[in-house]
Design a protein around this nucleic acid. Structure first.
Length: 305
DNA sequence: TTCAATGTTTAGAC
DNA sequence: GGTCTAAACATTGA
């Protein structure tokens, strides 16, 4: 589900809601989602009783200072020396309901057949109860995501936060920084290059497709073989597409929901992602869909050279 | 029944 | 070391 624009949407909308809330109780319904300490390895999550108890005990009574983001990781900063790291992976959702909204039904899947549901629902794995009666729900159908409790000073040791490329929307991500990245990986194909978190943070399958369409280059072109003009257009595409998507609160493909239960609206603007077989909006050629290194990429064979 | 799905890591091959 | 592939996590829906 979430790439940079979706995660940024969660962070922007959740931050003001959670700020200065105090946790009354945490209900962990699927222990493997949670873990404690910076060195936890993904996919070796044991969810033993000790860390489960530690997690609940540590969070009880803690006040939330703020919510921020690094790459696709959500960082919930707690008073004292603790922080919660939340990674949504493919299908994680964070939904916040105020006390008087707890009876509200939320549509958790952006498909016709999905009926709105009361929370906690079938895929709600962790519930945070705040002292003012509001609640934060963590849902995750595929159960790939996680919530990890770490000490502030341990954050630097979290391996999922190490070795990340620059944040593409920050001012410091300049054209010359981008050119330096290309020099480092000249052989990489563009689709791979854009999606590699050690090259640039936060770009996944949806936005790599859209950025490549914007830059009019094929996903299988080599990064080091672009013309000067193509490099500039690609750089501009990264900034433009991501900024636009953040403005529209992300794309709700499948199951991205905002913390309020609303949908992101950027999906309406997709030019190629999810449009395989349909016609290119610019030239009417049919959009192709091809596997590139295990991931499907969609592109216009006529507009993209 | 089979396939693909927004993410990330790891192992093995070349 | 760089790059590619497949597999792993678990479930749904077309």
């Amino acid at each position: 589900m979430p790439e940079l624009p979706e995660v940024q949407t969660v962070v922007s909308e959740l931050g003001p809601k959670l700020k200065n809330k105090t946790i009354r109780e945490v209900d962990v319904r699927l222990p493997k989602i949670i873990s404690v300490g910076p060195k936890t390895m993904p996919n070796v999550r044991t969810a033993d009783d000790a860390s489960h108890r530690l997690f609940k005990r540590h969070l009880k009574g803690k006040r939330i200072k703020g919510v921020s983001r690094r790459a696709k990781m959500i960082i919930i900063d707690l008073a004292g020396e603790d922080a919660l790291l939340v990674h949504l992976k493919m299908t994680g959702q964070l939904i916040y309901l105020g006390k008087k909204d707890l009876g509200k039904r939320i549509r958790l899947l952006n498909v016709e057949s999905a009926t709105p549901q009361l929370l906690p629902a079938k895929w709600t794995h962790v519930i945070f109860d705040f002292t003012d009666g509001s609640r934060l729900f963590y849902n995750d159908m595929r159960q790939f995501g996680y919530i990890r409790l770490v000490r502030d000073k341990e954050i630097g040791q979290v391996r999922e936060l190490q070795d990340f490329g620059p944040e593409p929307l920050e001012q410091s991500f300049t054209l010359s920084v981008f050119k330096a990245l290309i020099k480092k990986r000249p052989q990489a194909k563009l689709k791979q290059f854009l999606m590699d978190p050690t090259v640039i943070a936060g770009i996944g399958n949806i936005y790599s497709d859209e950025i490549l369409y914007f830059a009019k280059v094929r996903p299988d072109r080599q990064a080091g073989r672009l013309s000067e003009g193509e490099v500039k257009l690609l750089y501009k595409g990264i900034k433009n597409i991501l900024r636009q998507a953040v403005k529209k609160a992300g794309s709700s493909v499948g199951d991205f929901v905002r913390p309020s239960g609303e949908w992101g609206s950027y999906g309406k603007f997709h030019k190629v992602y999810g449009r395989a077989g349909e016609r290119c909006k610019a030239c009417r050629t049919r959009i192709l869909s091809i596997k590139f290194n295990g991931r499907t990429g969609s592109f216009c064979p006529s507009c993209q050279k």
